Simulated assay, not measured.
Amino acid sequence: AVKIQSTPRQTDKNPSRRLLQVIGKDMRIVVFGFRPKTKQRRAVYDALVKCATPARIWDIYAFSSGPSKCVNTNPKVRLLNEYFRLLGKSSSSATMDMIEEGSFTLSNELWRISDINSTYTMCQSYPFALIVPECIIDQELLQASSFRARYRLPVISWCHSGTGAVLARSSQPLVGLMMNMRSNADEKLVASLCTQLAGGKMSRRKLYIADARPRKNALANGAMGGGSESSSNYFQSEIVFFGIDNIHAMRESFARLRDYLDTHGTT
């Protein structure tokens, strides 16, 4: 959203600035200040509106801004290099030839890089390469994906190559209205995230399943086939609900907070 604002009239020798406020979908706010009695603000406003609602796809800023200044601009190569670092394989360097040949599936004792989504046929919103437990085969990944909303199965976002600690992500499980649907492949995949503790101990790590939604929202999603995990079905796990409402409610709440601060100030 783009909002044109005017500052209160000032009586001193310094004329008030003209403001242009840009509110992004990610809740970031950028405010431009312009000299009075110029056409700068209108020109910037028109340019922003043109970028926000382009008449042609080639008018989108991503196409007109020029090439990236990164050393390697290919996102697949950058992703693989980050995966190699997480697996403790920093000595390896990703290349386009490696991607085209499918020879990027490195692994360590705990985790491996899978190319099962290399053509995005399993999950369109996941990257072409995924870090998964080394003990889980690709066929089990396919089975687990069918139990998750939009096929977003549990995959590793971060891992410690030494201790085995992980952060993983997924969409909600499709447990249904009665919350009684289960998937052996999904439960095995999640259990594989609970690596053995360091120091030769036989006990495994406790798995915390963090659900950002309020509990009532998770239960309500069961009516549409979704829902939430049950700690009784997932090995050594605890479900934690963060109680964060959906993005629309959060955006409205943030807008009300901004309006209050604009009206009453911060003190």
Results as ranks from 00 to 15, higher is better:
residue 6 S to D: 15
residue 10 Q to Y: 06
residue 18 R to L: 13
residue 20 L to A: 06
residue 20 L to P: 02
residue 21 Q to W: 01
residue 25 K to L: 14
residue 25 K to M: 11
residue 31 V to C: 08
residue 31 V to P: 00
residue 31 V to W: 00
residue 37 K to D: 14
residue 37 K to P: 00
residue 38 T to G: 04
residue 43 A to T: 12
residue 48 L to K: 02
residue 48 L to Q: 04
residue 49 V to S: 09
residue 52 A to P: 00
residue 52 A to T: 06
residue 55 A to G: 09
residue 55 A to D: 10
residue 59 D to L: 02
residue 59 D to S: 03
residue 60 I to D: 09
residue 62 A to F: 08
residue 64 S to Y: 02
residue 69 K to F: 08
residue 74 N to H: 13
residue 75 P to L: 06
residue 76 K to S: 12
residue 80 L to R: 05
residue 83 Y to V: 01
residue 84 F to D: 06
residue 86 L to D: 09
residue 89 K to W: 03
residue 92 S to H: 14
residue 98 M to F: 00
residue 109 E to C: 08
residue 110 L to Y: 10
residue 116 I to N: 06
residue 118 S to T: 11
residue 119 T to P: 00
residue 125 S to K: 07
residue 126 Y to N: 12
residue 128 F to H: 15
residue 131 I to W: 03
residue 135 C to Y: 02
residue 139 Q to L: 09
residue 144 A to N: 04
residue 144 A to D: 06
residue 149 A to C: 10
residue 149 A to G: 03
residue 152 R to F: 05
residue 155 V to P: 00
residue 155 V to Q: 05
residue 159 C to W: 04
residue 171 S to P: 08
residue 173 P to V: 01
residue 175 V to H: 06
residue 177 L to T: 10
residue 177 L to G: 05
residue 179 M to W: 04
residue 183 S to A: 07
residue 184 N to V: 13
residue 184 N to W: 04
residue 187 E to H: 15
residue 188 K to D: 09
residue 192 S to N: 04
residue 197 L to H: 13
residue 204 R to C: 13
residue 206 K to V: 08
residue 209 I to T: 04
residue 214 P to Y: 04
residue 216 K to H: 11
residue 218 A to D: 05
residue 224 M to G: 07
residue 225 G to C: 11
residue 229 E to R: 02
residue 230 S to V: 01
residue 232 S to Y: 07
residue 233 N to K: 10
residue 233 N to A: 14
residue 234 Y to G: 00
residue 238 E to W: 01
residue 238 E to P: 02
residue 239 I to T: 01
residue 240 V to Q: 09
residue 241 F to M: 00
residue 252 E to C: 03
residue 252 E to T: 08
residue 253 S to L: 07
residue 260 Y to D: 11
residue 260 Y to W: 10
residue 261 L to D: 01
residue 261 L to A: 13
residue 264 H to W: 09
